[in-house]
Lab assay of single mutants.
Amino acid sequence: EETYEVDGEEQLKKVEKMLRDRNLDVEVEIHNGKFVIRAK
């Protein structure tokens, strides 16, 4: 499992696309105004 923490939606979209391109399962949560992306 990998976890990424990003600020802002633009970064979120980039990271999310990169992970989905690797066929990973992606979950996004918001913690303290930051996006936390978990990939399995």
Rank of each mutant, 00 (worst) to 15 (best):
V28L: 04
Y4K: 01
K13L: 10
Y4H: 03
T3S: 10
V15H: 02
L12H: 02
R22F: 07
M18W: 15
E29D: 06
E2D: 07
E29L: 12
K14M: 13
G33K: 01
Q11N: 10
V15N: 00
E5N: 07
R22Q: 10
V28D: 00
R22W: 09
K14G: 03
E9M: 13
K17T: 08
V26D: 01
E27I: 15
N23E: 10
E2S: 07
R22D: 05
V26E: 00
N23V: 02
E5Q: 08
T3N: 06
E1R: 09
Q11T: 09
E10Q: 06
L24E: 04
D25N: 12
L19P: 00
M18I: 09
E1A: 10
K14T: 10
K34V: 10
E1H: 11
A39K: 02
V36C: 15
V15W: 07
H31R: 14
V36G: 00
D7I: 13
V15I: 14
K13P: 00
K13V: 08
D25M: 14
I30L: 09
N32L: 04
D7E: 13
E2H: 11
E5K: 06
N32E: 10
V6W: 04
R38H: 10
I37Y: 01
K40M: 06
K14N: 08
Q11I: 08
A39E: 03
A39T: 11
K14H: 09
D7C: 15
E9G: 05
E10L: 06
I37K: 01
V36N: 01
E9I: 14
E1S: 11
L12N: 01
L19W: 04
L12Q: 02
F35I: 10
K40V: 13
E27A: 09
E27M: 13
V36A: 00
I30S: 08
K40P: 05
K13S: 08
E2W: 15
E5P: 03
K14A: 14
D21A: 08
E29N: 07
L19T: 00
E1W: 15
E9L: 14
V26C: 11
Q11S: 10
E9R: 08
L12M: 13
H31S: 11
V26A: 05
E27W: 15
R20W: 08
Y4T: 01
E10C: 15
V26G: 02
V36F: 11
